[in-house]
Design a protein around this nucleic acid. Structure first.
Lengths: 191, 191
DNA sequence: TACTATAAGCTAATGATATTAGTTTAGTCA
DNA sequence: TGACTAAACTAATATCATTAGCTTATAGTA
């Protein structure tokens, strides 16, 4: 049998797929190995443990979300950027429901991966820098900046989580609710 | 050994404790049985499976949260009720971090427990009735009522989830952020 | 080209956990 | 008292995560 050199990458891709199809909890080395066409213990050449594999997924999710947000807000600022940012967040959550628990976990408290490469900038920090840039037009002091950021993220994250787990449990269109929510948000922060 | 008649109740209480101490995922029949002073298979006299035990916890969490919210808003209406309601939600989340995933899951999609008693009113429905009552003073049409409710719940739920999982990752006081957020919310919805 | 180190895989084995089947027995009620 | 039931038990099985130790492609180097 020929040796593959891309198993690490394929492992992550397939793990994300599994998690999105079956939920964050049901990640399982046995079936993961099967899908990769290798035996379970061979996975330990690519991760230290199931827990550490989850850590890898958390880092990956943060990276991807951050990148999606960066792209969404690129070249925009103020209200336009925030709207675009919020929609990108929601879209990422819709496309990656299994990773929602992952993006709620701060990578700051995780052991570093140093598994292969990684310059290891805190995803949280990057997230904040980007947000600060977007919020500049609103001319807020630093405290308000933090509050508004927490509000925005809470709002959007909460919405996506509840939407995905059918927590809303009502027939009304949730797209409309989302737009409505963002509008109220701007009315609230524009004094 | 004397037979106990309260094992079902103790099982739930201890399960909640375990979940709050170690996280929703780490619920484990082996240790649960140990804490109850019985052997693992004996648990099957009190639940159909680990999955069904989780369902019981979800129902319980919804009931408890709902009750806490009801008490918080009791005798109040409008802004005062909503503020009180939001703080009660946050408090419940703080005291029951392990149940946060549970309260995000709609019981509507769960198989009914019919395990012992249960009049089985949808917790979601109760939640909505209560909320509608509170929001009456704002004189909103039905659609707006739904939107505002979703916004409120998203905001508060998201805040609590991110706060608990250290997702905010900043030194600023989160109590202040919470109050700030609720203030902005009212400015947003008061037109 | 041959040699060697390493990476990626394997088998075998162990331990934790969920679950089922079948049995025992304490307490309840006719 | 006697029978029923609920709550417990033991024994056994299946699924997983994990470790140890072995094998062999492949890459890089002498």
């Amino acid at each position: 049998m020929p040796r593959r050199t891309d198993t690490k990458e394929r492992m992550l891709v397939i793990a994300v797929k599994m998690v999105n199809e079956e939920g964050w909890d049901s990640l399982n080395l046995h079936r993961l190995a099967k899908k990769l066409g290798i035996k379970t213990p061979s996975l330990y050449n690519h991760c230290k443990s199931l827990e550490q594999l989850r850590h890898q997924l958390i880092y990956k999710a943060h990276d991807e979300l951050l990148e999606a947000l960066r792209i969404a807000a690129d070249g925009k600022a103020g209200k336009e950027a925030i709207i675009s940012w919020a929609h990108a967040y929601r879209k990422y959550g819709k496309n990656n429901p299994g990773l929602l628990p992952a993006i709620a976990i701060s990578t700051d408290n995780l052991p570093p991966l140093n598994w292969d490469d990684l310059p290891e900038k805190s995803a949280n920090e990057l997230f904040l820098n980007e947000a600060m840039r977007i919020l500049k037009p609103f001319k807020l002091d630093e405290n308000e900046m933090v509050h508004i950021l927490r509000m925005l993220r809470s709002m959007v994250h909460g919405f996506v989580v509840l939407e995905q787990s059918a927590g809303f449990g009502l027939p009304q269109d949730s797209n409309e609710s989302f737009t409505w929510m963002m509008d109220r948000f701007f009315e609230g922060i524009a004094q």
